Amino acid sequence: MGKLFKVIPVLLIITLLIGCGSNLSTYKIDFSEYEKQPTDSKEDKQDKQDPIRLAISSVLSPTDTIIYYRKIANFIGKKLKRPAILIQRRSYNEISNLMINGGADIALLPTGAYITYRENGGFEGIATQERFGSPYYYGYIVASVESGFSTIDDLEGKDVAFYDPSSYSGYLFVEEELENLGEDIKSFFGRHVYTYSHERSLSAVLNNTVDAAAVNSLVFETMERENPKEVKILKIIGKSMPLGTGPVVIRSNLAKEEKEMIKASFLTMHEQDSMKIALQGLYIDRFIPFDSEYYEVLYEMDK
């Protein structure tokens, strides 16, 4: 028995070694992980910069234009020597709340969203987009030529597509127009839907899914250039007052130096050869200095 007890520990050791040996062939220690650990040096701390966050809710197709917006985000990040993150949101409320709550540092804010939320604070305008030679745009009510509609009055009881409940061109100006006629937008139409895309709203008219749609004039003009045959079967039966295109806004509590760098970057972007293709892809001629007067035409709607 004494010899047996002496043999057992030896067998256990051999067994453990064999078991460990079988695992060693599949398990590897990656010592490079230790090289990635942060150090306390001042140089490393300076290299670790928080990303600059640019938020968008594009009036144009986000699928087709996302690459151009990424170029803008990267351009700004490079100027600030910080990594850049592009944040995309579908609705105007989402992108506005990002700016109000500090979830983004910069936003290409839709006009309706700026007017609706500007009194909430948290952000300020630094630039405005100039498109097709103008800093202004319109809201259009569009129907098919064959419909026989000629004014908004003809749409009573009809089905209509809207962009977003906070969109000026895609909803608010229609609401205002009906209020002037003593009508309520919620009961005037037979049915209304939100598409969250001006292009989808136009497609809904072209496909006879709805009788009419409220859309951004910039999107309509873009379609005129790209698909003139489709636009020929559409007609504009209503038009809003002119107002400024979507402003570029920044978080109010950013450092003053960063604010100035961001503002200068947008205002000189059209002068950079590396950015011309991106701006052309977004149909932006250039960014011009922000002026609150571009948006005062809708002051009464800001409640």
Rank of each mutant, 00 (worst) to 15 (best):
V215R: 03
L202Q: 00
L202R: 00
G182V: 02
N227P: 00
T268N: 15
K256A: 14
S166H: 13
V249G: 14
A214E: 07
Q280I: 08
V205P: 15
Y194A: 01
S252P: 15
E156D: 03
N216M: 04
V249Y: 10
R286G: 03
T222I: 04
M275G: 04
I277A: 07
D285I: 09
Y283I: 02
H270C: 00
I250H: 06
F188M: 10
L279R: 00
V231C: 09
E175Y: 00
H192K: 14
S197N: 04
E230L: 13
I152L: 15
D184R: 13
S217T: 03
F266Y: 12
F287N: 04
G157Y: 10
S150P: 08
D211E: 08
I152D: 04
V160E: 06
S203L: 13
I262E: 10
E221R: 12
M261R: 07
H198S: 01
K276R: 13
S274T: 06
V160F: 07
G190P: 00
D211N: 12
G238V: 00
F220G: 04
S169R: 04
E183H: 12
N227F: 12
R191P: 15
L254Q: 11
N180D: 15
V231M: 12
A255P: 15
R200M: 13
E257I: 08
F266G: 03
E183M: 10
I185P: 15
F287S: 03
Y163S: 03
S203M: 14
G148E: 12
S197P: 13
Y194P: 00
I277N: 08
M241P: 01
M269Y: 11
F173K: 08
N180F: 10
V160H: 07
P165G: 00
F188E: 11
H270A: 13
K232G: 12
M223A: 06
E230T: 01
I262N: 10
L254V: 14
K239H: 05
D184K: 13
R286V: 01
L181S: 09
E175L: 07
G190W: 06
S217V: 02
G281H: 13
G244Y: 08
G190F: 01
A278P: 00
V231E: 12
E221L: 14
E146R: 14
E271R: 14
M241H: 05
S265G: 02
V219Y: 11
G281P: 15
N227A: 08
M223H: 05
I233R: 12
L282G: 13
F162Y: 14
K186A: 01
A161D: 09
G170P: 15
I233G: 08
I185G: 11
A255S: 12
E271S: 07
E226F: 05
I284T: 15
S150G: 02
L202E: 00
F189T: 04
K158D: 07
V210G: 11
K263Y: 09
F162S: 04
T195S: 04
S166I: 05
A214Y: 05
V174D: 03
A213K: 01
D273M: 06
K276T: 02
I152C: 04
F149V: 09
S150K: 15
E260T: 14
K158V: 10
F266C: 06
G246A: 13
V248N: 01
D154F: 09
E179Q: 12
L267M: 03
L172R: 12
F220N: 01
E176F: 09
G170K: 02
S274Y: 02
E257Y: 00
V193G: 01
F220M: 02
Q280C: 01
L178A: 05
A161E: 07
R225I: 11
A264S: 10
K276H: 03
S150H: 06
